[in-house]
């Protein structure tokens, strides 16, 4: 288990020659998380949330300013070296691999640095190349790889030490859709095999699909946590139900109004009447029953429950300093 307690990370202001240092910035401000083995935990953020900073602290690349971070009971400051054996970090983008080495050589290089037992290393390299679909390109120098191939190699590098905990910082950023889907399957399998995964991603559908528990942070502070379902429910966002009738039926409007939910009436492209209903609960069943009883003939019924993305957008809107507009822009800009 990775546990952070009251984690705080302050970056000192930049020193400039003959000028006083700039103001310090609090990137992470009293964050307490736990990342259990065998599950994918999500870390979502609004603007400048401190997600990458948090991940780098967990990866021993940064030291906490205060608070504590332990990995299986070992402190990140005093036992950094031991922790480095147990964790690995995969960041989005195709950095972190050597262009002059082949795919296999890159993995061998890092395997040596991680001191992966010799008896295991070659088999593991083969497995990882297979996993990320680079078996055929294993002997090609990375210079000739496409961006997606480099990124897949980066992912294999992050698994070379068979980490007990894997930190994923926007791992699918810029990946082609099928490869991103494969990666999600890999992550789900790793968690099933007992690896503790921390995932940050702008692709909220990805988080919703993979994560059992999600932390939402804003400017370094925790603003919400829970399962994606609980988070979505917690924001009390409306379910929407769209209904189209075959033809106009006079009693239907009154029947829909009787349900007591907010609704809009309109017509579709073929001049057929439509109803758009919003309510905190899913009212599709009640709506259909009421319409049919009022003599309406339904040709189309569509139900849209709120998504995690809607929930995050709502939280961004509610966050006082972020403001609805900029929060929306941040999530929408992905």
């Amino acid at each position: 288990m990775i546990v952070t307690q009251e984690l705080r990370k302050t970056f000192p202001g930049q020193r400039k020659l003959f000028r006083p240092a700039g103001p310090a910035t609090d990137a992470v401000d009293g964050l307490s998380l736990s990342i259990p083995p065998g599950a994918v935990t999500g870390l979502l953020g609004l603007n400048g949330a401190g997600k990458t900073t948090t991940i780098k602290v967990l990866a021993t690349l940064l030291r906490p300013t205060s608070g504590s971070v332990t990995v299986d009971g070992l402190d990140v400051v005093t036992h950094a070296r031991e922790i480095r054996r147990r964790i690995n970090l995969i960041a989005g983008g195709e950095r972190m691999v050597y262009a002059r080495l082949t795919g296999r050589e890159n993995l061998w290089y890092f395997g040596q640095l991680y001191d992966v037992p010799r008896a295991v290393l070659n088999t593991r390299i083969d497995e990882l190349l297979e996993l990320v679909g680079l078996t055929d390109a294993a002997g090609t120098v990375v210079e000739r790889y496409s961006r997606g191939m480099r990124q897949r190699l980066s992912i294999a590098r992050g698994l070379i030490n068979a980490p007990a905990y894997l930190l994923l910082d926007e791992p699918t950023l810029g990946l082609d859709a099928p490869i991103a889907r494969d990666l999600r399957a890999v992550v789900a399998n790793l968690a099933r095999d007992g690896v503790g995964v921390l995932l940050t991603s702008h692709y909220l559908a990805e988080v919703e699909q993979l994560c059992g528990h999600v932390y939402v942070v804003d400017r370094g502070r925790l603003v919400a946590q829970g399962s994606p379902t609980a988070l979505t429910a917690g924001t009390r966002l409306p379910h929407t139900v769209e209904l189209t009738l075959a033809e106009h039926a006079p009693a239907v409007s009154a029947a829909v109004a009787a349900l007591g939910a907010e609704f809009e009436v309109g017509v579709d492209a073929e001049e057929r009447p439509t109803f758009l209903l919003r309510s905190p609960e899913d009212l599709a069943g009640e709506l259909a029953t009421a319409v049919v009883r009022a003599g309406g003939a339904i040709v189309r019924l569509e139900v849209n429950p709120p998504t995690l993305e809607d929930a995050i957008l709502a939280m961004a809107g509610a966050s006082p300093a972020v403001g609805a507009e900029s929060g929306r822009a941040a999530v929408a800009a992905r």
Binding site: E82, R95, V97, L113, Y114, D115
Partner: peptide
């Protein structure tokens, strides 16, 4: 600059040995 130094610092390898 290229990002591999960070990948190196992630590993437990002795910096002096490196």
């Amino acid at each position: 600059v290229s990002g591999t130094l960070e990948a190196m610092f992630l590993t437990p390898a002795s910096r002096m040995a490196l």
